[in-house]
């Protein structure tokens, strides 16, 4: 195995809690017994590394889902993919099991309370994970600024941390939720149906000034591409849009 300088940056994370937070998304709360808590900002990600008994290693990136001011644990939201090398293995772990992480990584797709009077977060599928960190931090900070979370899932059962999200929105009238479901035709009236498009964005963002709002979009490449183009068409400013693409 090549020994590189990067080696010293890995720390052990110990699983405190592991459970499904949606039909396919695994919520893993990790603690750090051997090293200090890795302080991060909402939107940043960590690398997780797995090593097999014969020395084979795999690394993947996972965004932080927990609020950054809360340092009892670091939570990940990991979509367990059919035959996924890393996500599939993580799904077999139990409390007290360990894995290696390094980070936080990235200083572009970051949001902190007070950054903008109006913030628009748009996520699809596992792309909502870093947005959850932002929403949790926003809620903990109790700022007066407006924040809207537009999200899209295949089915209602794919929405992670659903109860918590609805509670947060109920407690805070400045936090708006707009959820759209793409693969179920009959859903409760709490949700909308269809993919996020220009009409949906126009409706969901009525109260927002698109020219000045800070926009964060995260999801698959095709999702990010479609949503950012629609927003530009609606008058959003190119340089106010930050994107994160999961490939």
């Amino acid at each position: 195995m090549t020994q590189t300088k990067a080696e010293s940056n890995w720390i052990n994370a110990t699983i405190k809690e592991i459970r499904y937070v949606s039909q396919t998304m695994l919520g893993i709360k990790a603690v750090f017994e051997e090293s200090p808590f890795p302080a991060f900002e909402p939107g940043q990600h960590f690398d997780i590394r797995l090593t097999s008994e014969n020395g084979y290693q795999a690394q993947r990136s996972y965004s932080a889902a927990s609020a950054s001011s809360q340092n009892e644990y670091l939570e990940f939201g990991i979509d367990v993919l059919p035959d996924g090398e890393v996500s599939g293995y993580l799904a077999t772990l139990k409390p007290d099991d360990k894995f290696e992480i390094r980070g936080p990584i990235g200083r572009h797709f970051i949001w902190n309370p007070g950054n903008a009077k109006e913030t628009i977060l748009i996520g699809g599928g596992s792309g909502v994970v870093p947005l959850f960190s932002m929403i949790r931090e926003y809620s903990a900070a109790r700022v007066q600024d407006k924040l809207t979370f537009i999200n899209s899932f295949r089915t209602v059962r794919d929405i992670p941390w659903q109860d918590e999200l609805e509670n947060l929105a109920q407690e805070n009238q400045n936090l708006d939720l707009y959820t759209t479901i793409t693969r179920e035709s009959r859903v409760s009236e709490r949700y909308h149906s269809g993919r996020i498009n220009r009409e949906i964005l126009n409706k969901a963002l009525e109260k927002y000034n698109l020219e000045t709002a800070a926009v964060y979009i995260c999801g698959s490449n095709s999702f990010v591409e479609a949503v950012s183009q629609s927003l530009l068409d609606l008058g959003a400013a190119f340089h106010n849009i930050k994107t994160e693409r999961y490939g």
Binding site: T2, L50, T51, Q57, D83, G84
Partner: peptide, 27 residues
């Protein structure tokens, strides 16, 4: 370094991959 018990590569790496893939990368 931590060993993750029971973790195995999902996709076979050929000998060429071992020389051709930089550390930490996947194809």
């Amino acid at each position: 370094m931590l060993i993750n018990k029971g973790f195995k590569p999902k996709r076979r790496q050929s000998d060429t991959d071992r020389d051709r893939l930089p550390p930490g990368q996947y194809l």
